[in-house]
Amino acid sequence: MSNEYEKFVVERISAIDWRATEESFEHGTSSARLMRGYLRRAALWVQELQKAQPTPFFEVTQPERWPFFDIARHVDASVRPDAELAAELEAILAERSSSRLVGRICQAALNWASLSPDALARFCVLPDPFEPIILVFEQSGAFWIENGFIDFVAGRVRLTTWEDHLATEPLSALDKAALDAMVDVGAGGDNGDHVRARR
């Protein structure tokens, strides 16, 4: 049985005009900020999950797992989204999105939404890792990885190890007004990035 958060994630992704976002570069600055926010949140999760593993989270033979990986499977290896919603998402992405990477990220976001409250209980102080990157897709889906950067044309983010992103400034807020105001890379506050793991 699906939960409301799974439905919400699929509805958000379904509402994206992928062609428009992939051809739009006007939000490059805020998209770069949001991507930094995702990298920081993902790094926080890696740091916490690493505590339960005797070996490095990302082995030398698997560097491609960072930064876009299925975090939910590391929280609960048995997690599975509702079958109908998973099929709906797969059909939407196959029809509308041109990027396999986007598909992988969206499927990981759905897996995340499928986690039970019990599975997340011991991580209640950590933020939802996928919210910033879903916002990237909603406002400016066009990005690619090249020469060690995640590139948005009007802005780009250096792709380094997860440890390097732990010190990134938290996003101050994720509402439209805050996104529209994202001009200076160094700007940002503290209150918007410390939220429940489900938000």
Rank of each mutant, 00 (worst) to 15 (best):
122 R>K: 14
45 W>R: 03
94 A>I: 08
114 S>V: 13
14 S>D: 09
161 T>P: 02
62 Q>I: 14
174 L>A: 07
176 K>Y: 08
109 A>V: 14
77 A>R: 08
36 R>W: 00
163 E>I: 05
34 L>T: 12
37 G>E: 01
150 I>N: 02
109 A>Y: 00
54 P>S: 02
196 R>S: 13
87 A>K: 03
67 P>K: 01
172 S>Y: 07
145 I>K: 00
171 L>D: 01
177 A>W: 10
51 K>Q: 09
182 M>C: 07
138 E>P: 14
113 A>L: 03
185 V>Y: 10
148 G>M: 06
142 A>D: 11
3 N>D: 12
112 W>D: 04
19 R>E: 04
125 V>G: 06
155 G>N: 11
64 E>W: 00
41 R>F: 03
10 V>N: 04
14 S>R: 15
168 T>Y: 02
96 R>T: 07
98 S>L: 03
164 D>H: 06
49 L>V: 10
156 R>K: 12
104 R>S: 12
51 K>G: 13
93 L>H: 06
67 P>V: 01
69 F>T: 09
186 G>A: 10
177 A>D: 13
103 G>C: 13
190 D>G: 04
87 A>F: 02
74 H>L: 09
86 A>Q: 13
168 T>S: 04
185 V>D: 10
63 P>S: 14
32 A>D: 06
110 L>K: 05
131 E>V: 11
69 F>G: 02
38 Y>A: 02
18 W>H: 12
21 T>W: 01
100 R>V: 14
13 I>Y: 03
115 L>Q: 07
180 D>K: 13
193 D>L: 01
135 L>T: 11
127 P>R: 00
64 E>V: 04
32 A>I: 05
21 T>S: 11
103 G>V: 13
176 K>N: 10
119 A>P: 08
87 A>L: 06
61 T>V: 12
122 R>I: 12
48 E>L: 13
31 S>V: 09
19 R>L: 09
50 Q>A: 15
142 A>L: 15
